[in-house]
C-alpha cells in the first residue's frame, strides 16, 4: 500500500506529458469506482494515480458539427442532467438510468466505463449502436477512433500506453428510436448478465435500418451485424420479431460464470433483443 504516488495535472499538456513519461504506470483516476477496488483488493499495488476528475479540459458536454461531444471526465449524472443531451439524444439519458446506482453515477464517467475493455460496460452497447467515436490524445496529437475499432480483446482497447481518452463523440441521429435493456441479478447496482442496445429506423413497422449491440455475451461488447442484416427490409409483426431476434444467438459466444450460464445468456439475449425492438416500435412499454 505504500507504492502509490499522486499527481493532479493542471491542464491537458501536463496530463499528456505524464502519460507519455509513465505509460501504463500512470493510472488515470476520474471517478475511481474501478481503480479504488483494485487498490483495496490488492490487484493494483503500485503506480502514479493521475487525478483527472476535476480537469477542466476533460469537462463539458456540447453539440458541435452534428455531434454530441462529452468530455472524458464528465460524470454519468451530469450527462443525464445535461440540457443538450435531453434535447439532442434523450435515448442516452434514458439508457443511463439503469447504469449502476445514483451513488456510482455521481462519480463515474463514460470514458472510465469503456476504458477497461470490459464486455459488460453498460455504456458500450449504447456507444456502438450510436456509431460513436472515441477521441484519444497523446503528446504527438489526437485521433478519432471509431467505436467499432475501439474494443480489441478482453480488457484491451485501442488506446495506446501514451494516450488518454479526452472526448466521446456521438453523431446526433436525425431519425430513429433507441432502446437499451439490461438484465442484472437484481435491480440496484448489479453488473449486467446481458445487455442489449437497439437503434431502429423504421417506416411504420418496416425496418429501414437497425443497429444492434450486446454486452456480456462475448469477450467484447459487440455489434450483431448478421442479425441486423436479417432485420433490414423486413416488415415486423408479432411473430417474426421473436424469430429474427433468435438469430442473434448464432453470432454471440457467451460464457458461463457466476452471473449466469452460457445457454441462459443466449436465451436472454434473444428475449432482450425482441423486447428492445418491440419497445422501439411502441409495441410494449
Amino acid at each position: 500500500m505504500k507504492n502509490f504516488k499522486y499527481f493532479r495535472p493542471k491542464n491537458l499538456d501536463e496530463l499528456l506529458a505524464i502519460k507519455n513519461e509513465l505509460k501504463e504506470e500512470a493510472r488515470l483516476l476520474a471517478g475511481g469506482s474501478n481503480l479504488l477496488v483494485y487498490i483495496k483488493e490488492g490487484s493494483l499495488k503500485s503506480g502514479t494515480l493521475v487525478d483527472i476528475g476535476s480537469l477542466a479540459a476533460l469537462k463539458g458536454i456540447r453539440e458541435k458539427d452534428g455531434y454530441l461531444e462529452i468530455g472524458a471526465a464528465e460524470t454519468i449524472i451530469d450527462i443525464m442532467a445535461s440540457p443538450v443531451v435531453s434535447e439532442k439524444l434523450p435515448f442516452l439519458r434514458e439508457s443511463l438510468r439503469v447504469f449502476a446506482n445514483p451513488l456510482i453515477r455521481n462519480i463515474s464517467t463514460v470514458a472510465g466505463n469503456i476504458a477497461e475493455g470490459s464486455p459488460i460496460a453498460d455504456t458500450a452497447p449504447l456507444l456502438l449502436v450510436l456509431n460513436s467515436e472515441v477521441v484519444a490524445a497523446s503528446i504527438t496529437g489526437r485521433r478519432n477512433i471509431p467505436i467499432d475499432d475501439f474494443f480489441i480483446s478482453l480488457g484491451k482497447t485501442e488506446i495506446k500506453a501514451n494516450e488518454v481518452i479526452i472526448t466521446i463523440r456521438i453523431p446526433i441521429p436525425e431519425t430513429g428510436r433507441g432502446k437499451f435493456v439490461k438484465l442484472g441479478l437484481r435491480k440496484g447496482t448489479s453488473c449486467s448478465v446481458v445487455s442489449v442496445a437497439v437503434w431502429l429506423i423504421a417506416n411504420g413497422r418496416g425496418v429501414e435500418d437497425i443497429r444492434i449491440a450486446l454486452g456480456g455475451v462475448a469477450p467484447l461488447p459487440l455489434r450483431a451485424v448478421k442479425t441486423e442484416a436479417l432485420f433490414r427490409g423486413k416488415i415486423l409483426n408479432e411473430h417474426n420479431i421473436g424469430e429474427l431476434a433468435l438469430e442473434v444467438t448464432n453470432e454471440i459466444t457467451p460464457i458461463t460464470d457466476v452471473r449466469g450460464g452460457a445457454a441462459y445468456r443466449s436465451e436472454v439475449s434473444a428475449a432482450l433483443l425482441s423486447k428492445a425492438v418491440r419497445e422501439c416500435l411502441g409495441m410494449e412499454e
Binding site: R8, G32, V37, I77, I104, N106, T189
Partner: peptide, 27 residues
Amino acid sequence: CGIGECGACTVLLNGRAVLSCQILAIS
C-alpha cells in the same frame, strides 16, 4: 462491502451522495 455495492459508506460530497470508500481523501 468495499466494492461499491452496499452504500453503507455514503456521504455527501458537495451535496451529492457518493461512496466514501470509493474515493481518495487526497482527491
